[in-house]
Simulated assay, not measured.
Amino acid sequence: MSAAGWFIVLLALVGANLPFANQRLFSVVSLKTTKKSGWIRIAELIVLYFVVGALGFMLEARAGNRFEQGWQFYAVTFSLFLVLAFPGFTFQYLVKRR
Protein backbone atom coordinates (compact mmCIF):
# COMPACT_ATOMS: atom_id res chain seq x y z
CA MET A 1 0.00 0.00 0.00
CA SER A 2 1.35 3.41 -0.91
CA ALA A 3 1.89 6.36 1.40
CA ALA A 4 -1.22 8.04 -0.04
CA GLY A 5 -3.32 5.01 0.90
CA TRP A 6 -2.07 5.06 4.48
CA PHE A 7 -2.65 8.81 4.60
CA ILE A 8 -6.31 8.31 3.63
CA VAL A 9 -6.76 5.58 6.25
CA LEU A 10 -5.25 7.84 8.94
CA LEU A 11 -7.37 10.76 7.75
CA ALA A 12 -10.48 8.55 7.89
CA LEU A 13 -9.62 7.53 11.46
CA VAL A 14 -9.26 11.15 12.55
CA GLY A 15 -12.32 12.29 10.58
CA ALA A 16 -14.52 9.52 11.96
CA ASN A 17 -13.67 10.43 15.56
CA LEU A 18 -13.80 14.20 15.12
CA PRO A 19 -17.59 14.57 15.72
CA PHE A 20 -17.21 12.88 19.10
CA ALA A 21 -14.08 14.72 20.23
CA ASN A 22 -15.67 18.03 21.23
CA GLN A 23 -18.90 20.02 21.44
CA ARG A 24 -18.19 22.31 18.46
CA LEU A 25 -19.59 21.89 14.96
CA PHE A 26 -16.74 20.50 12.80
CA SER A 27 -14.43 21.50 15.69
CA VAL A 28 -14.70 25.15 14.61
CA VAL A 29 -18.17 26.64 15.16
CA SER A 30 -19.40 26.84 18.73
CA LEU A 31 -23.04 25.95 19.28
CA LYS A 32 -25.51 27.75 21.53
CA THR A 33 -26.31 24.55 23.39
CA THR A 34 -23.83 23.09 25.83
CA LYS A 35 -24.04 19.63 24.26
CA LYS A 36 -24.22 18.52 20.64
CA SER A 37 -27.16 16.29 19.81
CA GLY A 38 -26.72 12.87 18.29
CA TRP A 39 -28.29 14.00 15.02
CA ILE A 40 -25.69 16.74 14.60
CA ARG A 41 -22.94 14.20 15.24
CA ILE A 42 -24.43 11.86 12.61
CA ALA A 43 -24.66 14.72 10.08
CA GLU A 44 -21.04 15.65 10.80
CA LEU A 45 -20.01 12.02 10.35
CA ILE A 46 -21.71 11.84 6.94
CA VAL A 47 -20.19 15.13 5.76
CA LEU A 48 -16.73 14.07 6.92
CA TYR A 49 -17.14 10.73 5.11
CA PHE A 50 -17.69 12.62 1.86
CA VAL A 51 -14.77 14.98 2.56
CA VAL A 52 -12.38 12.08 3.18
CA GLY A 53 -13.79 10.28 0.14
CA ALA A 54 -13.24 13.33 -2.05
CA LEU A 55 -9.64 13.61 -0.86
CA GLY A 56 -9.12 9.92 -1.58
CA PHE A 57 -10.66 10.33 -5.02
CA MET A 58 -8.37 13.31 -5.68
CA LEU A 59 -5.25 11.39 -4.62
CA GLU A 60 -6.27 8.41 -6.74
CA ALA A 61 -6.86 10.61 -9.80
CA ARG A 62 -3.54 12.36 -9.21
CA ALA A 63 -1.76 9.00 -9.18
CA GLY A 64 -3.24 8.37 -12.64
CA ASN A 65 -5.16 5.17 -12.04
CA ARG A 66 -8.70 6.18 -11.14
CA PHE A 67 -11.15 3.27 -11.06
CA GLU A 68 -14.92 3.35 -11.37
CA GLN A 69 -16.69 2.26 -8.18
CA GLY A 70 -20.14 0.77 -7.71
CA TRP A 71 -22.55 1.17 -4.83
CA GLN A 72 -20.93 -1.79 -3.06
CA PHE A 73 -17.67 0.13 -2.66
CA TYR A 74 -19.45 3.06 -1.03
CA ALA A 75 -21.48 0.80 1.27
CA VAL A 76 -18.32 -0.96 2.47
CA THR A 77 -16.29 2.24 2.92
CA PHE A 78 -19.11 3.93 4.85
CA SER A 79 -19.38 0.87 7.09
CA LEU A 80 -15.63 0.99 7.65
CA PHE A 81 -15.90 4.71 8.45
CA LEU A 82 -18.53 3.88 11.10
CA VAL A 83 -16.27 1.19 12.57
CA LEU A 84 -13.41 3.68 12.74
CA ALA A 85 -15.73 6.05 14.68
CA PHE A 86 -16.23 3.51 17.48
CA PRO A 87 -13.44 4.80 19.79
CA GLY A 88 -14.86 8.33 19.72
CA PHE A 89 -18.41 7.06 20.23
CA THR A 90 -17.27 4.93 23.16
CA PHE A 91 -15.46 7.84 24.78
CA GLN A 92 -18.40 10.21 24.31
CA TYR A 93 -21.33 7.99 25.27
CA LEU A 94 -20.15 4.86 27.08
CA VAL A 95 -17.38 6.08 29.42
CA LYS A 96 -18.77 7.07 32.81
CA ARG A 97 -17.64 10.43 34.06
CA ARG A 98 -17.72 11.43 37.69
Rank of each mutant, 00 (worst) to 15 (best):
S2A: 03
A3T: 06
A3S: 08
A4W: 12
A4Q: 11
G5D: 06
G5L: 05
G5K: 07
W6I: 01
I8E: 03
I8P: 03
I8L: 11
V9S: 03
V9K: 02
V9E: 01
A12M: 14
A16F: 07
L18R: 02
P19A: 01
P19Y: 00
F20T: 01
A21N: 00
N22F: 05
N22E: 07
Q23W: 07
R24C: 07
L25W: 14
L25Q: 03
L25D: 01
V29N: 07
V29Q: 11
V29D: 07
S30I: 01
S30T: 12
S30N: 15
L31R: 06
K32E: 15
T34Y: 06
K36L: 08
S37E: 09
S37G: 15
G38C: 06
G38P: 06
G38A: 09
G38D: 10
R41S: 05
R41I: 12
R41Y: 05
I42P: 05
A43Y: 04
L45P: 06
L45W: 05
L45E: 03
I46H: 03
V47W: 05
L48C: 09
Y49V: 12
Y49S: 07
Y49Q: 09
Y49R: 08
F50Q: 08
V52Q: 02
V52M: 02
G53Y: 06
G53H: 04
G53F: 03
A54R: 09
A54L: 15
A54P: 00
A54K: 05
L55P: 03
G56F: 10
M58P: 02
L59K: 00
L59R: 00
E60F: 00
A61N: 08
A61R: 06
A61M: 07
R62L: 15
R62K: 10
R62N: 12
A63F: 01
A63H: 01
G64E: 07
N65W: 11
N65S: 14
R66N: 10
F67V: 14
F67D: 13
F67G: 02
F67L: 13
E68C: 00
Q69R: 15
Q69H: 15
Q69C: 09
G70H: 10
G70V: 10
F73Y: 15
F73D: 08
V76C: 11
V76T: 13
F78S: 11
S79H: 03
L80M: 05
L80Y: 02
F81V: 10
L82W: 06
A85G: 04
A85P: 03
F86R: 10
F86V: 15
P87F: 00
F89P: 07
Q92H: 14
Q92S: 12
L94T: 09
V95N: 06
R97H: 09
R98S: 11
R98E: 09
